[in-house]
Simulated assay, not measured.
Amino acid sequence: MIQLAGTTALALCTGLSPALAQMTAIGAGEGELSIVAWAGYVERGETDPKFDWVTKFEAASGCKVSVKTANTSDEMVALMNEGGFDLVTASGDASLRLIAGGKVQEINTALVPSWSTIDPRLQDAPWHTVDGKHYGVPYMWGPNVLMYNTEVFKEPPTSWNVVFEKMDLPDGKSNEGRVQAYDGPIHVADAAQYLMFHKPELGITSPYELNEDQYKAALDLLRGQRTLVSRYWHDAFIQIDDFKNEGVVASGSWPFQVNLLKADGQPVASTIPQEGAPGW
């Protein structure tokens, strides 16, 4: 089970003011487009030559694209508050902050040719649709996977407990100092997802909506995890290096890191354990 509520990535258009009228037609191009994006979202072949969708867009449109990579939702919000960007691939834990702060404008979905092909469950999702107005277009979605070293785990781990609970791993060594966790408030949802499975008495129905007791239980779990974690990661490329060179063998991660490491011939794989996983 993947819990997507509130974390689907969006493309949001910046507005000059909250009262700016909705566009009714696409005007002449301005010649440049400045984007705040997650790593891997706006590729021009620099990460991997096989993945380049910016170059053809620039050639076809005459519009020069510049990308500022952000590593956390908080960083995205801060950059958008500074101004100077046209688009942001904001996850759900940032999009509503941007909407409430008047940093993004309503979009006209009739001007998006492929709107009808978007999964209907995402078209009016509450993390980009407010009072019937759309402020973003669902762009990507995926799971927060459990990435692991296949030389340590001969079989895929069946539980997130390998990163939440102190234990010896299949190679006979402790997981202390060999696991990681994401560096951001949204990691509370990972803990809540784990507790939803293992402590049903808490009554958690969504990892993104917790009452006081549920929130306290999630924080207690995360405090215990702190003794195990070697690094709280937020830079995808630093996590890649940690798996290659720093002895990290298990962590919550994204398919982006998994795919790059596997392409590099590293002994990694990913799984979604029995507790399920939050998504974006």
Rank of each mutant, 00 (worst) to 15 (best):
H128N: 07
D119Y: 02
A125W: 07
G101E: 07
N149S: 14
Q123I: 02
T117V: 00
T109C: 00
P138Y: 02
G136K: 10
P113Y: 12
M140D: 12
D124V: 03
L111D: 03
I118H: 00
W127C: 09
V152G: 08
N108M: 06
S95F: 03
V152N: 08
D131M: 13
V137H: 05
K103T: 00
D93H: 06
L98R: 05
M140N: 12
P120W: 10
G102I: 06
V145Q: 06
M140P: 00
M140G: 01
K133D: 06
R121W: 01
D124Y: 09
V104L: 04
Y139D: 11
P143I: 13
V145C: 14
A94M: 02
W141H: 12
L96R: 15
H128I: 01
K103H: 15
R97F: 06
P143T: 12
I107W: 04
A125Y: 09
E106A: 15
P120E: 12
I118L: 10
R97E: 13
P138I: 05
D124I: 00
S114L: 07
N108E: 04
N108P: 04
V137Q: 03
D93P: 09
P120M: 04
E106L: 01
W141I: 10
P120D: 06
P126T: 13
L98F: 06
G101I: 10
I118G: 00
Q105K: 15
R97S: 14
Q105I: 02
P126S: 15
P143L: 10
P120I: 04
K103V: 00
A125I: 09
T150Y: 11
D119H: 01
D93S: 13
G132M: 11
I118D: 00
V152W: 11
D124F: 07
G102Q: 05
N144W: 15
E106M: 07
Y139R: 05
H134F: 06
D131Q: 14
A94W: 07
K133F: 08
W115G: 00
P120Y: 09
G102F: 08
G102T: 03
K133L: 13
W141G: 13
L96V: 13
P126N: 13
H134A: 13
S95K: 05
